[in-house]
């Protein structure tokens, strides 16, 4: 039996405590940092951020520089960005307009309502459009037309979720996160492609 009052024991205790420090801290970077990269798209270069669960944010390079993109991401998601290690699967094809390419998306930061709106919108085929009222009805909230419009206006991943295919019931093409001319051009080119 050792006695507990000797200086030796004190040293042993301190050494034992020091040895409790793990020598192998796990790599938490995937959980703490999201990745971002710049890629071409059919509306020009875009910046895209993704978590380990999927693509979470997309904006035009023309609208936001590097720091502006980081700041927008920080404001919206409260997470740091670092350069992405790889391009998310299917991302480049989807941005190129390939309807069959469906990259994984991370929409966890959204409300259930916003997610429902975006999920319904994602089902609208290229070459077609739907009204805001259709989206609201589709998710079982027929009176929430205006709220559906707001959810689409803050779509974190335009192009990948084709919010440009949602238009007012009457009149012009309505508003778009990247501006009305871009929306018109996208709809026209999709219509033309469907005809060929």
């Amino acid at each position: 039996m050792t006695t507990m009052t000797t200086p030796d024991h004190g040293d042993a205790l301190l050494a034992g405590l020091a040895a409790l420090a793990p020598s192998d801290a796990p790599d938490l970077t995937d959980r703490v940092f999201d990745g971002w990269l710049a890629v071409p798209s059919r509306i020009g270069p875009v910046r895209v951020a993704s978590t380990r669960d999927g693509v979470s944010f997309l904006r035009r390079a023309a609208d936001l520089d590097d720091e502006g993109f980081r700041a927008a991401y920080r404001d919206r998601f409260g997470r740091p960005l670092r350069p992405a290690r790889s391009v998310p699967d299917d991302l480049e094809a989807a941005l190129d307009g390939d309807a069959g390419a469906r990259p994984r998306l991370d929409l966890l930061a959204l409300t259930d309502f916003q997610r429902d709106v975006l999920a319904a919108t994602r089902t609208i085929p290229a070459g077609e459009t739907r009204s805001y009222a259709w989206v609201a009805a589709e998710i079982g909230r027929p009176r929430a037309v205006r709220a559906a419009g707001t959810a689409l206006a803050t779509n974190p991943v335009p192009l990948l979720i084709p919010c440009h295919r949602v238009v007012p019931s009457h009149g012009d093409v309505g508003r778009y996160i990247f501006g009305v001319p871009v929306k018109q051009a996208l709809l026209q080119s999709e219509k033309a492609e469907e005809k060929t």
Binding site: A25, L28, T29, R74, P80
Partner: peptide, 13 residues
């Protein structure tokens, strides 16, 4: 902030 935070992570994780 983001580059600095990467530094913070490296130093203290």
């Amino acid at each position: 902030l983001d580059v600095g935070f990467a530094e913070l992570y490296r130093a203290y994780h």
